[in-house]
Write a protein that binds this DNA or RNA. Structure first.
Lengths: 346, 346
DNA sequence: GAATTGTGTGGAAACGTTAACGCTTCAGCG
DNA sequence: CGCTGAAGCGTTAACGTTTCCACACAATTC
């Protein structure tokens, strides 16, 4: 209605015929207040449409009830669900989520951290980003406020990890058991924790099976995102091509699938494919793609949960990272190597 | 290093040997300050690692440099990209984005609006949500702060609209031109603007072609999201089934595609399919699905742009909504009806 | 040389809230 | 009847900024 309705605690006090201190106590039910004061204040407050100013509260209490979240790509479905879950959980606890997109750029990430710190967020959730950024770590330690890292190898401050290692190991073993010996791992940069973990899992599975890893089949370098298709095509058409592919995310998965198709190779008869991360594409492709999956919502919830624990000073919380497990969803994109040989040999 | 490094403007003033007022002026280069003061202050500030407290600034200046964004589902790819683009643009202007997930629940949306208002956000971006919520509108008008609506038929405050009407019209006409006469429109609730607009476009295209619309082919009711597949299946198997399907988003599209497959109908030979909204699924499905597409990034940028304009009091900005256009990306999921008849007749 | 303008500065008053600290009042008790 | 303790309340000092005002002094003008 009115253009500016700045109703402050003072107005409420006047309307209720008490002092501002009493209004504050009545509203927060903290300290000594009479029933009658409480009801008078409540009446006046609602009549005037009073809403406490959260900024002034933050100022006074040295706490904003805001947590910041830094994500390399907010639009990446593997992160978006995490964000949603975290936001929902945090809000239940009266916190609100500030987001920042880092675009995987360390400089931007630092800027964002500074910005959030200036804004006095109570804590920060850091998604995986370009290297583990020593400078940033130092920054955070200096300012010394609660931070929780997600899929990132922070020394201090614990964090939440998805068990990419196990995921890679499971899927590699699965393929090895099917008789595949040349398996391509097409994952993210090994400068990031998830990439490193996957390579380890991949190696462990090979070791367990007593099979040598061909380092040429590990694609951990950025794998020039724009050229996935062409790079995949040359791999598929190489002299001694892989018989199975483990592909991270939808981009790489799509590139590999298209390359296979273009090369006239059928899935799973001529090549097996496993997706790292479940997606619409994996679920709905024909044939449906076997995938390593983990609970995105849970990651978000756990992230929020750890953050909240860290936010209450009484509960001393350890620095041990929480691990979210991965599992393999079997669909129709993998077949025994024998079958392929039979087809070839016929 | 230290546990609490609370360095305030007072510390800087002491270190630089000037008063707090001077520090403020020097830092903000506002008002009269001498060069010498500026450099002394700058030196002291950087030496002490001073960072102005944004909360105190907000308190004083009655502006937080925060904008809130309410989205029904942050993890929906059609929104996630918009969020990212908006965040990026807003940050360039020194603003920061607070997000809230409404889950398409009007009550939650109201709560969130209240919460954001208490937190004194400078403005709010409202994504499409459960009905156009008259109560909310009234709330916003009362508090009278800048809000920009996205795909929502707000009376006041302008907004940004995707031209769903044109999109539906284009795709319907495209199918009609191919000879289809029984086209199913499987979209969202007509309580939401986008749903209504699509129906209008759908109708207009039919009118232009002089073809009657069978209301039974318009699925604008929630279309019980969990049962898309089964509902689609019964539609596909009905006595006089549609020969073409226009499907909103990945959920419905996937359901319809699976239903068609299960019923043994091939795309596009036996049924044509168009996706409303482009997606990995549409792009990478075999055959690739023709889709109505719009520029998500642009929506986000425009949203931010309008917000920013509205945030500077000098520029008087009109209430006319900005429209983002849609276009049809032709792929391989549509075929002339004749061809299908020929197949059938053979 | 006095009156006028300018320039840089320090001090203090906000912004809206909460919490610490006293001051009343009143019941209970010896 | 005086003393004690507690309950309820008002006053006030923060929280860290920015901005207004006044003042001192230098530079200009008549």
């Amino acid at each position: 209605m009115t253009k500016r309705d700045k109703v402050t605690i003072r107005d409420v006090a006047a309307a209720a015929g008490v002092s501002v201190g009493t209004v504050s106590r009545a509203l927060n039910k903290k300290g000594r207040v009479s029933k009658s004061a409480i009801s008078a204040v409540a009446e006046a407050a609602s009549r005037l449409g009073y809403e406490p100013d959260a900024i002034a509260q933050s100022m006074r209490q040295q706490s904003t009830k805001v947590v910041g979240m830094l994500i390399s790509d907010v639009a990446n479905p593997f992160f978006a669900s995490v964000i949603r879950a975290a936001e929902t959980r945090l809000r239940k606890a009266g916190y609100v989520l500030l987001i920042g997109n880092t675009d995987n750029d360390a400089r931007r990430e630092s800027e964002l951290v500074d910005m959030f710190r200036r804004r006095r967020v109570d804590g920060m959730i850091l998604g995986p980003c370009e290297s583990d950024n020593a400078e940033l770590l130092e920054q955070l330690n200096r300012s010394y406020f609660p931070s929780v890292a997600f899929d990132r190898s922070f020394v201090s401050g614990g964090g939440v990890h998805v068990d990419h290692r196990k995921g890679a190991q499971l899927s590699t073993r699965f393929l090895l058991n099917l008789g595949h010996e040349r398996i391509a791992l097409m994952s993210s940069s090994d400068r990031l924790r998830p990439g490193r973990e996957r390579i380890e899992g991949f190696r462990t599975a090979h070791d367990d099976a007593g099979i040598e890893v061909d380092p040429k089949l590990i694609f951990a370098e950025p794998f020039a995102m724009e050229f996935v298709f062409s790079e995949a095509l040359s791999l598929v058409n190489s002299p001694n091509p892989p018989t199975a592919y483990i592909c991270l995310g939808t981009r790489i998965l799509a590139g590999v699938l298209q390359a296979l198709k273009q090369a006239g190779k059928r899935v799973p008869e001529d090549a097996s494919v496993i997706s790292i991360g479940d997606s619409d594409l994996a679920r709905l492709h024909a044939p449906a793609i076997t995938a390593i999956s983990w609970d995105l919502e849970m990651v978000g919830e756990v992230l929020a949960e750890v953050m909240l624990k860290r936010l209450m000073p009484e509960t001393e919380v350890g620095d041990d990272p929480v691990t979210v497990s991965t599992h393999l969803i079997q669909r129709n994109s993998c077949a025994p190597l024998a079958r392929r040989l039979a087809v070839k040999g016929s």
